[in-house]
Amino acid sequence: MIAQAMPNSTEIITTLSNETSLIGTASTREVVQFFVLLILAYVIGLVIAHYLKLRLSHKLKSDQLVLLIRFVRVILILIVVSFSLPGLLDLSITILALVFVALVAIIGLSSQNVISNMIGGLAMLYESPFKSGDFINTNDVSGTVISTRLFSVLIRTTSGVYVQIPNAQIYSSDVSNYFAHVARRYEYVVGIRYQDDVKKATAIITRILEGYTYVLVHPAPEVFVNDIDADSVRVMFRVWFPSVWARTKDDISLQTAILPRVKAALEAEGIEMPYAHREILFTTPIVTQPGPGGK
């Protein structure tokens, strides 16, 4: 039954030869109609872009909005071309289907990465794990997002290096966004000597933190002993900062703003931060002998 339903090779060749007018004689009217439709699609694209800007400009970052608008406009042009071109060039549906399948196969095989990057870009546009201006860490790269594009994300590292990461790579890996929330917690640790008063040290650190403008009142800073190691008593303090302010700083700037004040305040109160040292005890007396020249 199947063999009877399937056309044989002769019939296929006959069918193709009957529809071999791949490019027909398009009239001037049809050509004008095609271009009018193209212009119409372009204008509709502009109108939709304007509407999207009005409706979404407060929800999306500018680069995300541009990406969305471009995508919509490309889709509109593709719709017009795919509906108008077959009539204009006098292509039959069979030929068009064959060409389409072939094109999809070729593009699919040769441009896997491009397509996956584009899909990754659209997925990120929908999920918005970060915006331009956010500080992120992904694929062992840390930096500020400059823009999100159709195929890649541009990042400027803290050392000023321009890094382009394909969307598919970012979408399939972990992303840490440091400024997604309005506040962010930082942790610092200082070591003090065993003989120093821990309560006094925590009181001094608390006073310093409460006097620092950008340390948030709520959640309040936490100061506590988190470890007692071989050389010191380690006092940890956890501090919340506004992300908007921290956005303009890097971690080193925050440390240079906080830690020197803490160190100075502790030292002013006689509390010292010890360096690592070892006390060696000899079980037998050490006999020293004079060296050359009696020294």
Binding site: A180, V182, A183, R184, T213, V215, L216, V217, P242
Partner: peptide, 19 residues
């Protein structure tokens, strides 16, 4: 007057305030 800031609400859904 010295400035202090605070967080009203959760870090993911709150607002920073001048306290």
């Amino acid at each position: 007057v010295p400035t202090r800031f605070s967080l009203y609400g959760r870090p993911d859904a709150g607002v920073i305030t001048r306290w």
